[in-house]
């Protein structure tokens, strides 16, 4: 009962922060960008919006002072997502990040899903190099995990292979591929234009398809054992207890 009210109040706070951001800060940013940034406005406005959208998660997570075991679950899963690549050293381009983020979202909730995704992207860039792409990647993987958690809670997504694979494939192809490509387009063009966007989508298409196929493959094989492991650990950690 107490747990329930806690999550409700934290969700309310997240909604509140999100509300303030959407009604005040984001329009202000857009106005500022339009008037002062000239040719760079698209890039900076989008970048700032990406950063703002991660803010509510950060604030809510910090303000409810999470327990040691919650921190560990997020850190362990994010590290697995990053280090997991080493198990496929003989197969380049096979990245399990999205699959593990989705499993985290489904098993541990939307918030954990978001955090695992964002932390995994950030940590992986400590090893491969931070760059202007870091916030975009954090946002995309975070969003994939968050949506997985929400959809699972609403009953649209089940802990079964097929729906997970479907969601995994679509989300990596459209959310990840779509937003990352948009970000890199805005990085170096002065104006947003549809033909340019379509061109960059076409040029990045096969790359994104490989990524999506890898995610589907991982989810197909890994989802069941991973979910079993996480459910077991949730009992062993006492994550289900108040």
């Amino acid at each position: 009962m107490q747990e329930q009210s806690l999550t409700v109040s934290s969700r309310n706070r997240r909604t509140l922060v999100a509300g303030v951001l959407m009604t005040l800060v984001i329009p202000a940013t857009i106005l500022f960008g339009v008037y002062f940034l000239g040719d760079r406005k698209y890039y900076f406005i989008s970048l700032l919006i990406v950063l703002y959208s991660m803010l509510p998660f950060v604030l809510v997570f910090e303000s409810r002072r999470p327990q040691a075991r919650e921190l560990l679950v997020v850190a362990v899963l994010a590290a697995i997502a990053v280090a997991g690549r080493a198990a496929f050293f003989m197969l380049p381009q096979f990245k399990p990040v999205a699959a593990i983020v989705i499993i985290a979202g489904v098993c541990c909730g939307a918030e954990a899903g978001f955090l695992v995704g964002a932390v995994a992207a950030f940590v992986s860039n400590f090893f491969f190099g931070q760059g202007p792409w870091t916030p975009w990647q954090m946002f995309c993987f975070g969003l994939i995990g968050f949506l997985a958690g929400i959809l699972f809670k609403k009953g649209f997504l089940k802990k079964e292979r097929l729906p997970l694979c479907l969601y995994g494939g679509l989300s990596t192809l459209f959310i990840y591929g779509g937003i990352i490509d948009l970000g890199s387009l805005l990085m170096f063009t002065p104006q947003f234009s549809w033909p340019a966007l379509i061109a960059i989508y076409i040029s990045g298409f096969w790359f994104n398809v490989v990524h999506a196929v890898a995610t589907v493959f991982f989810l197909f094989v890994l989802s069941r054992p991973m979910i079993e492991k996480l459910d077991r650990i949730k009992i062993k950690y006492g994550l289900l207890e108040p």
Partner: peptide, 18 residues
Amino acid sequence: IPALSLILSMALRFVPRY
């Protein structure tokens, strides 16, 4: 952001270990 930066520190320790 104390909790998240601790997560970061832990994840950074775990990755080479894993």
